[in-house]
């Protein structure tokens, strides 16, 4: 079992392949890995409760930690009370923590 940090900088409104990246997170969980999905830049847009957020909530129910960059949220006026179920705001420092601790870190 390995630790993975998947960084999603794209959003499903612009990019079809975001769903594939979420699916990759899901696949890594199925393989028994510990997976964090970190949303940054426009990647945080589906973190606001909307028709696009259920796939993220679903990932949290399958065992992924889903975090959203607090600066990207604030930059887009997304307050914590508007976040979809299961998604937590986080400082970007968490990415450097994962890098320092040897997680497999993948940017999309």
């Amino acid at each position: 079992m390995a630790k993975y940090l998947l960084i999603e900088s794209r959003d499903p409104f612009d990019s079809n392949d975001v769903a594939n990246f979420y699916e990759m997170a899901s696949g890594l969980i199925r393989e028994g890995n510990e997976v964090t999905l970190f949303l940054v830049q426009n990647g945080v847009l589906p973190a606001r409760r909307s028709g696009a957020s259920p796939p993220l909530t679903s990932l949290t129910r399958r065992g992924a930690e889903v975090l959203a960059d607090d600066f990207s949220l604030r930059e887009r006026g997304i307050t914590e009370d508007r976040l979809a179920e299961g998604i937590q705001p986080s400082a970007l420092d968490i990415v450097v923590d994962h890098l320092a601790n040897g997680s497999k870190v993948i940017w999309h």
Binding site: S9, V96, L99, A100
Partner: peptide, 19 residues
């Protein structure tokens, strides 16, 4: 692209830790 700024934010965090 916003990636450039995010990259510099990450590099800055690592630098401030003395890495």
């Amino acid at each position: 692209n916003a990636r450039s700024t995010t990259a510099l934010r990450l590099i800055n965090i690592a630098a401030q830790r003395g890495y």
